[in-house]
Amino acid sequence: DFYKILGVPRSASIKDIKKAYRKLALQLHPDRNPDDPQAQEKFQDLGAAYEVLSDSEKRKQYD
């Protein structure tokens, strides 16, 4: 669930989604977690979630 990945409720605004994405991107970035083999995958999932939820048309289709 993309909302769960970003840690935001379904009613979150685009601004809230962007804020959550930036915070998590810093935490999950593979360069900051060189010892975590799943860091790259988590970071890619985060990017996919943000791409869908930050675009109003894609978000409507997802919901």
Rank of each mutant, 00 (worst) to 15 (best):
D1L: 04
D1V: 02
D1T: 07
D1R: 03
F2H: 15
F2R: 02
F2E: 03
F2Q: 05
F2K: 04
F2G: 03
F2N: 07
F2S: 04
F2L: 13
Y3F: 03
Y3G: 03
Y3K: 03
Y3M: 00
Y3W: 02
Y3C: 11
Y3S: 03
Y3A: 00
Y3L: 00
K4R: 12
K4I: 03
K4D: 05
K4A: 07
K4P: 01
K4V: 05
K4G: 15
K4L: 04
I5V: 10
I5G: 03
I5F: 06
I5N: 04
I5W: 04
I5Q: 07
L6S: 02
L6D: 03
L6E: 02
L6M: 15
L6Y: 00
L6C: 05
G7H: 13
G7C: 05
G7F: 00
G7S: 06
G7A: 07
G7R: 09
V8E: 02
V8P: 01
V8S: 01
V8F: 00
V8G: 00
V8I: 08
V8M: 03
P9D: 11
P9M: 09
P9W: 03
P9G: 14
P9H: 05
P9A: 10
P9F: 06
P9I: 05
P9V: 09
P9N: 07
R10L: 08
R10E: 14
R10T: 14
R10Q: 10
R10C: 08
S11E: 15
S11K: 11
S11I: 04
S11D: 15
A12D: 00
A12K: 01
A12R: 01
A12E: 03
A12C: 10
A12M: 00
A12T: 05
A12L: 00
A12G: 04
A12I: 02
S13Q: 10
S13G: 10
S13A: 11
S13Y: 01
I14A: 14
I14K: 15
I14Y: 15
I14C: 15
I14N: 15
I14H: 13
K15C: 15
K15F: 10
K15I: 13
K15H: 13
D16L: 10
I17H: 04
I17P: 01
I17Q: 03
I17K: 01
I17M: 02
I17A: 02
K18P: 00
K18N: 08
K18F: 03
K18A: 11
K19V: 12
K19T: 12
K19E: 13
K19W: 07
K19I: 04
K19Q: 08
K19H: 11
A20T: 05
A20W: 00
A20I: 03
A20P: 01
A20E: 06
Y21D: 03
Y21L: 00
Y21F: 07
Y21M: 03
Y21R: 04
R22A: 11
R22F: 09
R22E: 14
R22W: 12
R22N: 07
R22S: 11
R22P: 03
K23S: 15
K23H: 11
K23Q: 05
K23P: 04
K23R: 14
K23G: 10
K23T: 13
L24S: 07
L24Q: 11
L24V: 07
L24F: 06
A25I: 14
A25E: 14
A25S: 14
A25M: 06
A25Y: 15
A25Q: 13
A25R: 10
A25D: 04
A25F: 07
L26M: 13
L26I: 12
L26W: 12
L26H: 07
L26D: 12
L26N: 15
L26E: 14
L26G: 10
Q27A: 14
L28C: 11
L28Q: 06
L28N: 09
H29C: 04
H29S: 12
H29E: 13
H29P: 01
H29D: 13
P30A: 06
P30N: 04
P30M: 03
P30I: 02
P30T: 04
P30V: 03
P30C: 04
D31S: 10
D31I: 08
D31W: 05
D31R: 09
D31C: 08
R32Q: 09
R32F: 05
R32M: 09
R32P: 02
R32E: 07
R32N: 14
R32A: 11
R32C: 14
R32K: 11
N33M: 05
N33K: 05
N33R: 12
N33L: 06
P34D: 09
P34Y: 10
P34T: 11
P34N: 13
P34W: 08
P34G: 13
D35M: 13
D35R: 11
D35P: 06
D35W: 07
D35F: 10
D35N: 10
D35S: 10
D36E: 06
D36W: 05
D36N: 15
D36K: 05
D36M: 07
P37D: 07
P37H: 08
P37Y: 07
P37Q: 10
P37E: 10
P37A: 13
Q38N: 08
Q38A: 13
Q38P: 03
Q38Y: 11
Q38M: 12
Q38F: 13
A39H: 05
A39M: 05
A39S: 09
A39T: 04
E41S: 15
E41N: 10
E41H: 07
E41K: 14
E41C: 12
E41Q: 10
E41Y: 07
E41W: 07
K42M: 10
K42P: 02
K42V: 09
K42F: 05
K42S: 07
K42E: 05
F43N: 03
F43C: 04
Q44F: 13
Q44T: 13
Q44Y: 07
Q44R: 13
Q44W: 08
Q44A: 10
Q44S: 12
Q44V: 11
Q44D: 10
Q44N: 10
D45I: 04
D45E: 15
D45M: 15
D45A: 10
D45V: 12
D45R: 13
D45C: 09
L46C: 05
L46I: 10
L46R: 00
L46D: 01
L46K: 00
L46W: 00
G47Q: 15
G47H: 05
G47W: 08
A48G: 07
A48W: 09
A48I: 15
A48L: 11
A48V: 13
A49P: 00
A49I: 06
A49M: 02
A49F: 02
A49G: 01
A49N: 00
Y50K: 03
Y50R: 02
Y50F: 10
Y50G: 00
Y50D: 03
E51Q: 12
E51S: 09
E51D: 08
E51F: 09
E51R: 08
E51M: 05
E51V: 07
V52F: 04
V52Q: 05
V52N: 03
V52S: 05
V52L: 06
V52R: 04
V52Y: 07
L53T: 00
L53E: 00
S54P: 05
S54I: 15
D55F: 02
D55M: 03
D55I: 04
D55E: 04
D55S: 10
D55Y: 01
D55P: 01
D55A: 05
S56L: 15
S56F: 12
S56D: 09
S56P: 15
S56Y: 09
S56M: 15
S56V: 14
E57L: 11
E57A: 11
E57W: 04
E57P: 04
E57S: 10
K58S: 07
K58C: 09
K58A: 09
K58R: 14
K58E: 05
K58G: 04
K58V: 03
R59C: 00
R59V: 00
K60H: 15
K60Q: 13
K60S: 15
K60F: 12
Q61L: 11
Q61W: 07
Q61D: 08
Q61R: 13
Q61N: 14
Q61E: 15
Y62F: 13
Y62L: 02
Y62T: 02
Y62W: 01
Y62A: 02
Y62H: 06
Y62M: 03
Y62Q: 01
D63N: 05
D63G: 04
